[in-house]
Amino acid sequence: MPSPSDGPAPGSATVREAAAGATSVPAAVAVREVRHRYGRGADAVTALGPLTLDIPAGEFLVLVGPSGCGKSTLLRLIAGFERASSGTVAVHGGAPEPGRQAGVVFQQPRLFPWRTVGDNISLALRFAGVPRAERPARVEELLERVGLTGTSGRRTWQISGGQQQRVAIARALAGGKDLLLLDEPFAALDALTRERLQEDLRTVSAQTGITSVFVTHSVDEAVFLGTRAVVLSARPGTVALDIPIELPRTGSEDPDELRGLPGYAALRAEIGATVRDAAR
């Protein structure tokens, strides 16, 4: 049996907390004792909290948990689409403002069908203050980043659902924000397209270092994409598990080799077990 001088066991909650406390990376998002309710009086439902969470700059945080646990609610609070019933949410030290601090990608692409692929992205560049003369080059750069080179002149209804979601990600990146919020963006796609987009998003994350918060029901998606996973309990959602995902992340990993790593399987098992417990 280890003595007290031996310190906590590797992988224990204490080690994780110590590692988190030792980091000097400032928090891009700070959530403090947040609770959120819907409705009033006897019909009120507490969807979330109490919940306290720091998201350091450059982290790819994945929120996973059973349906109705408050994952999307937390994302909307960070985006500024809703205000917490109690507690505080801060983005870069200030109150969240819709469209100001974060790019957001939803379950559906929500593109403008009367605009071309390039024009959808160019509009976001315009709102971001990018000069007109610079926009065409930036559009092509963003399309290349999401694997859609040569599609700028096509109509959105002329491309597949997976390609439309790539455009939505490019549009979110076009705003120049250093925070990206994604609410189950691949949920409606077929399995093969979903895997390809996961690979692309992981590469974009590794190359840009953008702070990201990603909501999913998929444990495998959480482990594949994230640098950290937070499992929320059943409603009202609180933190059931907060675990770093320490896997290779250069953007050039072979997906099959990555999924074959022992550490990958161990993370998937731990997160999956916690999600199942939370759903009971």
Rank of each mutant, 00 (worst) to 15 (best):
T216S: 04
A42M: 02
S12R: 00
D54M: 11
A168H: 04
P50D: 10
G147A: 09
V62D: 08
T116E: 06
T14H: 02
L53P: 06
T149Q: 13
I78E: 07
E253L: 05
L258I: 09
K71L: 06
A44C: 08
G21T: 03
L51H: 14
V31P: 07
G11H: 02
S252G: 08
A133Y: 06
I169Q: 02
P4F: 06
R37N: 07
P113Y: 03
A30H: 05
R268G: 04
P96E: 14
R228G: 13
D200Q: 10
I271E: 14
T23A: 14
I121V: 12
V45T: 14
P131W: 00
A265Y: 01
I121S: 01
R280C: 13
G94M: 11
F112L: 14
G7N: 01
T227K: 02
A266C: 08
A133T: 12
P2H: 03
S233L: 12
H92V: 05
A133E: 14
P98C: 13
R132M: 01
A269P: 06
A27N: 08
A172K: 08
D178N: 15
V62M: 11
G161P: 12
R16G: 00
S5R: 03
G58I: 06
R32G: 03
A9Y: 02
E33G: 12
T156P: 11
L181T: 03
E140R: 14
T211I: 10
V29L: 08
A240V: 09
D43C: 04
A22I: 00
L179F: 15
E199F: 00
S233A: 04
L74C: 02
G68A: 02
S252C: 02
L63C: 05
E257S: 10
A137W: 10
I55D: 06
L143R: 11
R268Q: 15
L48R: 07
G103T: 01
S12W: 00
G150P: 14
D178P: 05
G251V: 01
G129N: 07
G162S: 04
V230P: 10
T203Y: 00
G175V: 12
R228A: 13
G147N: 03
D256K: 15
G99M: 13
T23D: 08
I243N: 05
L261P: 00
G39D: 05
V117A: 05
R115L: 15
G39M: 06
A30T: 15
A30L: 13
V130T: 13
E221D: 11
G21A: 15
F186W: 06
R259E: 12
L125P: 07
R171C: 04
A95Y: 07
R40F: 08
A28F: 02
I169S: 01
E134N: 10
E199I: 09
A124R: 07
E221K: 11
A279K: 06
D54L: 07
L111G: 03
K71T: 05
A279G: 14
V239G: 11
D6T: 01
P136G: 04
G176D: 11
A269K: 10
L179P: 01
R83C: 10
R280G: 15
R166Y: 01
R135I: 03
F186G: 07
R35L: 09
V130C: 08
I55K: 05
P248D: 15
A102H: 13
D277H: 11
A278M: 14
G251A: 09
D242L: 04
E199H: 03
A206D: 01
